[in-house]
Design a protein around this nucleic acid. Structure first.
Lengths: 218, 218, 218, 218
DNA sequence: GATGAATGAGTCTTCATTCAT
DNA sequence: GATGAATGAAGACTCATTCAT
């Protein structure tokens, strides 16, 4: 019953001309996705928008899902790079500074291609294993966890897996909701402070007190 | 040619038999949605699953989107009722208690129909989606804001609009992420504490200190 | 990879209107098959020729192969009935008479729809388990074997499975070749004699000698 | 728009390298034909299997049908050579011996490439098919007729055209049916006897004396 | 009201074939 | 000559929706 299985590109596009065609197709895919939404996106529309024959499109991608998957991967890779770079950069900085910087970058990242982000987020069914933000979140959680590990003495949390999940999910959600529902918030630089505060209070020791947080006891 | 925009049921189904038919159809819709996913859901399948002719189905709903919208509304109403009830119940309780209770209910709410929740969340395009969590969140924000207004002296935040947005979004996101990606977390009662902590630290005054958090002024 | 699995009709066409539609479609299928050949036959052409929408066609048949299969079954059933009827009729008659009659009917059968026969025979890939003539041949072999069993004393052959396979295959092939390559032969009543002779000499005892033919020994 | 009719190779491939390329292509064609069946055979697949670019393939053959036609011709030529050689060899031998030998060779011939034979026989449409067994049969009939002419005194038949048609068709059909439907028969050497008997009884005088059919005795 | 047969625009996809490099 | 990227006509098939009964 299941129609399409493959989500991976068909051939590697070795020649210059091929490479170009693939790029043109992916750009058109993103454009149509944004303009029409996932459901109304069709391989024919994409081909037309790309100024490429439908045959060429199918030479490189086995179908619609593969196209979308490629767009996702491309976009995702950019974001991941941005996040990973920042994580590396702040690795040695104290929690408060590092958190703020990561929050800032996260918000910035969401502003790169907000419309595409919205479509990918709201309309695109899960494709392949993990989709879109999920993959990014997983990687972000990994990076944050590594950071927390190195800065344990600044924390009041004990379960680092849980803490990194909580922190990343929260930042992601707040940023995401702001982008989609309160775009004006993004303009206010104040928003960064607010999100940072939320996470920092959750993670960090109450000012200067080196005691661990007791979880359930008084 | 022009797509149908109407998303409202066709007749109010005043009579008892009609009401029943509508229910049967909506249940079938939810079932197919869960079983097949949004894309593979078709009006014909729904009609068959409901044991109703396709013609009858169209007598009550103008199309697929209206069906999904109705399912969303139904589900949404249940959740809203739950949340509004809780909000009412905790209105007079102190911040810490009220927050914990609302978090608990929120998590509970997400566990009601997790598969349907997933489909509605991950696969269902805009039209319906708009009405889904967004509507709930908006209402939740309204309720939380009202509560915060009444408990201002317990807070360190000043902008209640922002604070309620932050709080609700965070709880929603953590709960949501837990349901979809870490279902085992939900089992641990500990998770409620964790989410509560996150929100509470953000909102409340540092223990016993009656000073407000200054946001813009000194 | 395999595209279509089902070769069986989709629904049973209970109402009068449905039944009619199915018939119209099958007739159109046969017509197009004859006119265009198997490869150039398409579901769209069939639908057009039947004066039916492509959607209706797919309501009853899952695809091209199922259509052809249905045509084959229909045609095949007619032939089988003819052959089975004859077999029954000649069951008590002596070998020489019975053989002649069966050969005559076989030739007659091939003349029913020679063009369709040709297409089905020459161009139609094996569909489903057994296809077209194969099924008929199998049944014919069964019937002939039953006859031979009852008339063992007239035979010089011992292995009835083999003998019926040889006899049926030979008659089928000669008739078939005549239809396709020497149609004028069919006109000559003489042809029946010739085919009958071929089979009879193979099967029957040399005139009046009641001894069995020894197969491998002297 | 107009379909290509040409079925002849494009250039005579005079040079050694060309000849080699042509061979590689034809072998690939046969391989794909066997592996995928006629319908799923495509020029692109053939080119890939042959390790040749699609462009090169079209330099030697005007299209798919020409490729198949060439494979048929090649295969056919081998068979024809085999048959013609045998006919020549047995030309002076008595009917019983010659018949047996020809039947043996015919069966042997069918065993050379049974899978290719099956595809060519069952799935390959007219254009190629015409050239396939039909051409062989025609030639075989010619050869058999010539033989019969020379051995008229051993025959009980008068119409040699008819007799050779009958004989060849019968042998061909029995062999063919055995290959495709009762492959185990081919193993039994006995099968040669059986087919020989069938034809011999049809053709030959009842052992010169009052109708008696001797099969294996001198 | 209920029914379900009929519709057909629109999708995906393949593949023989061409042609610029 | 060789290459393989590009082409696009054509075919299979789905499904939201209508409408005669």
């Amino acid at each position: 019953m299941a129609k399409k299985l493959s989500v991976t590109p068909r051939k590697q596009a070795l020649q210059a001309r091929s490479r170009e065609t693939v790029d043109v197709i992916l750009e058109a895919t993103a454009r149509i996705l944004v303009k029409e939404g996932y459901d109304r996106t069709s391989t024919n529309k994409i081909a037309r928008a790309a100024g490429v024959s439908i045959g060429s499109l199918y030479q490189y991608f086995p179908g619609k899902e593969a196209l979308v998957a490629a767009v996702i991967t491309k976009h995702t890779d950019e974001l991941l790079e941005l996040i990973a770079g920042t994580a590396l950069r702040v690795a040695q900085l104290p929690l408060a500074v590092a958190t703020r910087e990561l929050v800032r970058v996260m918000i910035e990242a969401h502003a790169i291609a907000p419309k595409l982000h919205r479509v990918l987020t709201e309309q695109t069914p899960r494709v392949g294993r993990l989709a879109y933000m999920e993959k990014i979140d997983d990687e972000a959680i990994r990076l944050v966890r590594a950071y927390l590990e190195m800065h344990r003495d600044e924390l009041c949390v004990e379960d680092l897996d849980l803490a990194s999940f909580m922190a990343v999910t929260t930042v992601e959600a707040l940023t995401h909701a702001a982008v989609l529902r309160q775009p004006e918030l993004l303009a206010q630089p104040h928003f960064v402070d607010e999100v940072t505060t939320m996470v920092l209070r959750y993670l960090s020791l109450p000012d200067g007190k080196p005691r661990k947080r007791a979880r359930l006891s008084a």
